[in-house]
């Protein structure tokens, strides 16, 4: 068996928040953005990280490309602890793992031409200057920008959102990484161009054999890109399994609400109220036991007392006391 490319074990990312004053007043001063997450990704696997804003999905993604460091537990890439990488090993890691950001207009310097934007990673990786132009053109072709030469001297504001997101994708791919974290890459784009960007993402991933994490709150988009989905809530994993199974029969009560909330382009859709309480709790002060219990329509006594462990249910893992006996 091959070893996984990415292995996360009980990873934690706790942010210190608030002031000395609020600490003296006894207010909690830690946000547990990622709190005990474990999963692993095989080479070439694509996984969706699904959850509402504030669930820690972006923090989790940032840990894996070392834009943050774990404050506890472990996150390994190709066997090495990501937060411990130094020197040459860190440089290699930086070229092997990349992030594609949500808003393409925020992800590039508005005063740089696209050639300059694209050349930055090449310069950082020490690629000889003579190769830059060819590699930039090749990367732009990879994301299916027609006639790529024309983009080199343009500035970001001269491109549409869809074109610029392709450039951002090309920049992430220019060093031929093994691993990509895409953070809601189409949420800022018009519906009519989204499909093209998603199709390019799928094509490039398959062509390069990329291992990918796709972060989104919309299961319909995750389903289009990933065969496996991890559902997060307040820094923890609620459910992890094949996307189709999750779409057809969500097991965790939170996943059920997420599936019910996905908008569809059909007139005959359910208008039933969502099976979830309103408003996520204050992340500084999450409920005891199961973090989802105060919004959960099925919560019972044990949910407040004990943190549910992750249990295997068929092809999936679910962290919910409803499945305690199912074993």
């Amino acid at each position: 068996m091959t070893t996984p490319l990415v292995e996360v074990e009980n990873a934690q990312l706790h942010y210190r928040v608030g002031s000395a004053v609020s600490a003296m007043m006894g207010l909690p001063s830690v946000v547990k953005a990622v709190d005990g997450i474990s999963f692993s990704l095989n080479k070439g696997e694509s996984v969706g990280l699904l959850g509402e804003s504030g669930c820690g999905k972006t923090s989790m993604g940032r840990l894996l490309v070392r834009l943050e460091n774990v404050t506890g537990g472990s996150a390994r890439f190709d066997g090495a602890e990501i937060s411990q990488l130094k020197g040459r090993a860190l440089r290699t890691f930086r070229s092997r793992s990349q992030m594609i950001f949500q808003n393409p207009f925020d992800a590039v310097n508005p005063r740089y031409t696209l050639a300059k934007t694209m050349a930055e990673p090449l310069a950082n990786a020490g690629i000889p200057k003579s190769e830059w132009r060819d590699r930039i053109i090749k990367a732009l072709e990879l994301v299916r920008l027609a006639d790529p030469e024309q983009y080199l001297d343009r500035f970001p504001h001269q491109l549409s959102g869809g074109q610029l997101q392709r450039v951002v994708m090309a920049r992430a791919l220019i060093l031929e990484p093994d691993f990509v974290v895409a953070d809601e890459p189409v949420s800022m784009l018009d519906v009519s161009v989204r499909a093209g960007v998603l199709n390019v993402f799928r094509e490039v991933r398959d062509k390069l054999g990329l291992t990918a994490i796709y972060i989104s709150h919309d299961l319909a988009l995750v389903r289009y890109v990933c065969e496996r989905t991890i559902v997060m809530y307040l820094g923890r994993i609620m459910e992890d399994g094949p996307t189709e199974a999750i779409v057809r029969e969500p097991l965790h009560p939170y996943t059920q609400a997420l599936v019910a909330a996905v908008p569809t382009p059909n007139a005959d859709q359910s208008h039933e109220p969502l099976p979830i309480g309103r408003g996520a709790p204050d992340p500084r002060n999450p409920p005891s036991g199961c973090v989802f219990r105060d919004r959960c329509p099925k919560a019972f006594d044990r949910c407040a007392a004990e943190v549910p462990a992750s249990k295997k249910v068929g092809t999936r893992h679910v962290a919910c006391h409803l499945f305690d006996e199912a074993g």
Partner: peptide, 24 residues
Amino acid sequence: MGLKNAFPDIASAGTGILTPISGA
């Protein structure tokens, strides 16, 4: 018609292929 093709539908049986409206 094109807008509808470009939108993922979780109620559908499979994912099919999303079709963008090319051009601007």
